[in-house]
Amino acid sequence: MTQPLVAIEGLSAISTRDGGAPVLRDVSLTLEKGEVRGLVGESGAGKSTIAKALLGILPSTVKVTGGFIRFEGRDLLAMPRRELSDIMGRDITLIPQDPQTALNPARRIEAQLTDGLRLKLGMSKAQAHERALQLLDEVQIRNPERVLNAYPHELSGGMRQRILIASAFALNPKLVVADEPTTALDVTVQKEILRLIRRMQEAHGTAVIFVTHDLGVVAKICDRVTLLYAGKVIEDGATADMLTAPKHIYTSALIAAGPRYDRPNAGLEPVPEAVFRQLRAEIGIAERRV
C-alpha cells in the first residue's frame, strides 16, 4: 500500500482569541498524489484553519490541541522550523484568495514571480527570467515581457490571479493549497481560473486542497470533497457520489439550496433551521456560532 501525500489524523484546535472555543474537532482526511480535494462549509467552518495548518502559518491565537498532519509520512506539526521552511514554498505552495492584496504593489511582477525560483532553487536572474516567461506562457498570458515589467496595479484581477497561479506552480510543488482563489473575481473570469487551475494541476501532477463555499465550484474541479460544519467533518467522499447520493441530511440540504458559483455568498442561507439543530445536537454544541 502506498502512503498518501497528506494524512490529517484527528486534528483538533481551539481559538484562544474566542475563549478557547473549538475551531477544529477531530478532523481526519487523506489526500493522494495528484488529487484535487475540496474543503467545503459555511463561514467559520474551519476551512482556512486547515489550509493554514498545512502551510504552517496558523495564527498565534489558534492552538492545536491534538492530532497530526503527515506530509509524505513526516509530521508537519512536530517538524523543526528549518525543515518546515524547506518544504513550504517548494513542496507546498499557496494560491491566495484575493489577487489585490497578494501582490506587492511596490514591486514589479518579475521580482515577485521569481522570488521562489531564486531563493529556493538558487537560480540566477537570467535563468529565473527564462523560467518566468515559460510560466506566463503556461498560464496563457500574452506579451509576457510587458507583464513581467509591470506593477500589479497595471493588471486586471484575472491577470493577477493567473500570475499567482503561475507563481504557485513555479517550483513543481507536490501540494497547492488554494483558499477560495476565485471568490474575489468576476463570474466569467472565475470559470477561466478554475479551468486553469485544473489544467496546471494535471500538467504538473500536483495535488490541490481547494477551499470554497460553493458546491458548484466543487462539482467543476474536485475529485473528492470534505464537508465541514463548526470544525467537524460532516461528510467525506468522491465528488460525484456525494453530489448524487449524499449520506448526511446537511449535505442534501446544501445541494437542495443550490449555491452557485455566480453568487458565492448567497448560497447557504436556505438550509432549514431544523438541519442546523440536528447538526448541533450531533456535534454537541449548544448554540449556533456565527
Binding site: 491566495p96 497578494a102 506587492n104 504593489p105 515577485q112
Partner: peptide
C-alpha cells in the same frame, strides 16, 4: 498582507520581508 505571507513562504528572510516587502508600502 498576503504578499508578505507569500514571500515568507518562498523563504525570504525576516529582515528582507520588512525592508523589501513591507517598508516601501
Amino acid at each position: 498582507q498576503d504578499y508578505v505571507l507569500l514571500a515568507r513562504l518562498k523563504g525570504m528572510s525576516p529582515l528582507r520581508l520588512v525592508l523589501q516587502e513591507a517598508l516601501r508600502n
